[in-house]
Simulated scan of single mutants.
Amino acid sequence: MKKFSVFFSVLSVIVVTILLSACGNTKSGRNNIYIVVDSVEKDSFLEETKSGVNDFCGDNNFNFESLTCKNESDFLNKLDFAGENGSLVWACGAYFFDDAKKAAEFNTKSKYVVLDSPSDDKTTNLFGVVFRTEESSFLVGYIAGMTTNTNQVGFVGGINDDNIATFEYGYKAGVEFAAKERKTNINISSEYVGSYADLAKAFSIGDEMYKAGNDVIYQAAGAAGLGVIESAVQNDRWVIGVDVDQSEIAPKNVLTSALKHCRAIAKYVSEDIIKNNFKNSNKNTYYFGLENGSVDIPSNHDNYSDELYEKTQNIKQKIISDEIIVPKNKDDYETFKKELQ
């Protein structure tokens, strides 16, 4: 009897172990999709991307989890963990690229997507998503240039890098285009917060720029941009939103917004990669712009005229048809200005 007792005890342990192992495989297997972010700050860009990935997971029975890095030294740890335990990993920001590449090389069965960065063409399980933000920035720049009364407009960026350069120089080109149409000169000033989370510093920068005579500022500074919006309210000036329609935050001060439809794109790319379609991937990089409606401006335009909205729509079509080539860096911008004269 004792022998049977021991036998059944051992058998029970084996069965429980197998069951636990099976459960573990379900939770940490190929049915997980992770998104890795570097900040707990509320950022419309990140929130929309998370929602899009979560939409895909909900529709396709995948588990969704968001991982927040403590600092830069934690990037690789989180990306590696996600790759070991999931089938798809989203890295939210171009600054993740180097660590995402390393993690992708470690975890060849998982696929990685870096938002706002092209892929390197060599790492087969590494993908990039690039929004042509210079195009929507050109449109809001044109609106700013046609709206300013002081002929002084500004730009406030988060971190000064190649990604935010597309916002800055696309915007400046749009302002220059408007200045030519108006046959006037418009001064454009640029400042950087050095962070995507420092609302107080962003407020201070915006406040100083408004007091210096800028009556329109385009902010592309993540969560810190809310500080610029607050400074617009305090100074009763115009501000241009980014990523989502930010008019609800300050209806009387948000002139327009440069949109990125992150939610729809995150869902689409997740499905495309999981199903191995790669329909719109060019050498492992997905490009999204005005042509496919992935960047744009809001159709509501309570703070500027129907006539200006229609003019902006005509310019949009010229960008789509390549009649206007929008610059995305300083060199291209300088060339654009020369050709515009």
Score class of each variant (00 low, 15 high):
D98N: 12
A173F: 11
V153P: 03
E135V: 01
A82H: 13
S137E: 08
G145Q: 09
G174H: 11
I159W: 06
I159H: 04
K109F: 01
N185F: 06
A103E: 14
D99E: 14
A165G: 02
G141R: 13
F81W: 12
S110W: 04
D161R: 04
E168Q: 15
V89A: 05
D121F: 04
K102I: 04
G158W: 06
R182W: 11
K109M: 00
F127T: 12
V89N: 04
I143G: 13
D116I: 00
F97T: 06
D98K: 07
E84Y: 06
A173I: 02
E134F: 09
G145D: 04
I164V: 15
G83P: 00
V156R: 11
K172R: 13
F138V: 01
D161F: 03
A179C: 02
F106M: 09
T133M: 08
A144W: 11
V114K: 09
V113A: 12
D116V: 00
G158C: 02
R132L: 09
A179F: 05
S117A: 13
N160T: 04
G170W: 11
F127V: 07
T133C: 02
G83T: 00
K109A: 02
E134K: 06
T166P: 06
N151T: 07
D161A: 04
E134Y: 11
I186Q: 01
A173V: 03
T147R: 04
N151F: 12
F167P: 08
G154N: 14
C92T: 03
F155T: 10
A179W: 13
V113G: 14
N125K: 11
K180F: 01
F106L: 08
N185Y: 08
A82V: 06
I159V: 15
L139N: 14
V153A: 05
N85C: 03
S117G: 01
T184C: 12
G93Q: 07
A178T: 01
E105V: 05
